[in-house]
Deep mutational scan, measured.
Amino acid sequence: MASQGTKRSYEQMETDGERQNATEIRASVGKMIDGIGRFYIQMCTELKLSDYEGRLIQNSLTIERMVLSAFDERRNKYLEEHPSAGKDPKKTGGPIYKRVDRKWMRELVLYDKEEIRRIWRQANNGDDATAGLTHMMIWHSNLNDTTYQRTRALVRTGMDPRMCSLMQGSTLPRRSGAAGAAVKGVGTMVMELIRMIKRGINDRNFWRGENGRKTRSAYERMCNILKGKFQTAAQRAMMDQVRESRNPGNAEIEDLIFLARSALILRGSVAHKSCLPACVYGPAVASGYDFEKEGYSLVGIDPFKLLQNSQVYSLIRPNENPAHKSQLVWMACNSAAFEDLRVLSFIRGTKVSPRGKLSTRGVQIASNENMDAMESSTLELRSRYWAIRTRSGGNTNQQRASAGQISVQPAFSVQRNLPFDKPTIMAAFTGNTEGRTSDMRAEIIRMMEGAKPEEMSFQGRGVFELSDERAANPIVPSFDMSNEGSYFFGDNAEEYDN
């Protein structure tokens, strides 16, 4: 993207840094990872977990959730003011799984939030270390993106479920800051804005008074975040219109849905970061690795190297396929839920299948599930090659597409044709070009129609051997075009429920 120079890199967003050079960025990201790792080690000690239990991804998720809940100030305040039966607002906890007599047992633990905050700050040299908290939120978000298709949420806001490739980060909490905003897809931002506008339509006082002023500035800020994701002048001009509207209503909703559809071809720039579970960072720190000293990046080879040398386990339900569970977590670790499966298959070195073909449910185990038949197995999170994460949407291309997802959002900077089903997408653009945004709409449609099938995206960008740390010898991959490109292809993934 041309304006790259004016933006802070995501590592800076990730670490609240002012302008830093590459070495400083690597050190501050490393410091953040160190903090998460030290916190995780301490929690495993508190909970008396064995090494194996500490490497269980379900335990990692519970521990991450506990610290996120302990620092969720708004919710904590709300819980104190609106006490609900049987919930102690000062405590947080969740299921911890232990191996007892050759069987997995679930144990519900409860801790004072104050105590968890103390352990977290102690692991982070006394700081609140917001960057580390956001990092864990993005890992949870990436896992949700890989596990669930947001059909219901899309339909509720009037969008087409086939636009799911635009929904990265749709389950990120509001408090995820600049680093969170960077990884949100165009569809996620559109959905947040539509929800806001709908509230304004239904509630006369939404934009009024002292609160209304705050609401208005939040609305304009979200519009600017979305505008910054678009790469064409016409899309940005249309966002200006939406932002400046005196009284946002149905016309703005129409414009936003139009823009979301246009992003299936004229893709937005959305950041991709490899955020790993805390149970990967903990053992690495415990083994003596100093992330701050060595430096770390979320968008280069580092996460690949770390996963190459990590042992992570997962509980497996009786009829689940461990290899499929591994694929789910591998995609989440690489922030690749909406990437082209052919690119992923090449990088991973084994075939990556669409969601609907995987015999696996989510990673988390519900409290009512029976533990008797639970097994555990090693997650295979290694890769054959590594590639640089991208934040450009890439230019655009036609490809055989599917009944489910009709476009992709690249996660890796790797040369390819970008699949999208042009006739299906263009069919949504018939007729409606009147109104105050008509010239911009016409211009956007013209650009979409001009998108050429034979153009290559990320020209000359390749993948790298894991021994090639400096990215000196790019390998331009070859793809098996007979395979499906979309992950949520004609899909039956479970729906995400809060």
Rank of each mutant, 00 (worst) to 15 (best):
I406E: 06
Y111P: 08
E495V: 12
S376F: 08
M163F: 15
I25T: 03
G431W: 02
K184C: 13
R75H: 13
L108Y: 10
D468M: 10
S402I: 08
E192C: 04
G93R: 06
V476F: 12
T188M: 10
S310I: 02
L226V: 09
H140D: 07
R470C: 08
R19L: 06
W386F: 15
S287W: 10
F291S: 15
S383D: 07
V29K: 07
E484S: 03
P453G: 08
W139E: 08
F464Y: 08
K293M: 10
Q20D: 09
M481C: 08
N417H: 14
A472F: 12
A70D: 02
Y111L: 15
T62R: 01
Q42A: 00
T134V: 01
V343G: 13
G169H: 14
V29M: 07
W104M: 04
Q415I: 12
T15H: 00
L298T: 08
R121Q: 02
R389H: 11
W207I: 10
I194C: 01
R261A: 13
D372W: 06
N202R: 00
R348E: 08
D16W: 10
L68A: 01
E64L: 03
R150Y: 10
P89A: 01
Q311S: 01
A387L: 08
E81G: 14
Y385A: 06
E252G: 15
I194M: 09
E469K: 08
V100N: 15
V343S: 07
N125R: 01
R400H: 03
E46T: 02
K98M: 08
D51G: 00
G17H: 01
T350Q: 04
G212S: 05
I406N: 07
A428G: 02
K293L: 02
D51I: 00
E18M: 05
D34I: 01
A237V: 09
R38C: 13
S287D: 10
N205V: 03
I25D: 15
E46K: 09
G431L: 00
D439C: 07
N417G: 02
I253F: 05
A336E: 07
E449W: 10
E292I: 12
R416Q: 13
G485P: 07
V67S: 02
Q241K: 05
V270A: 03
Q42P: 05
A411H: 07
R106G: 12
L264V: 12
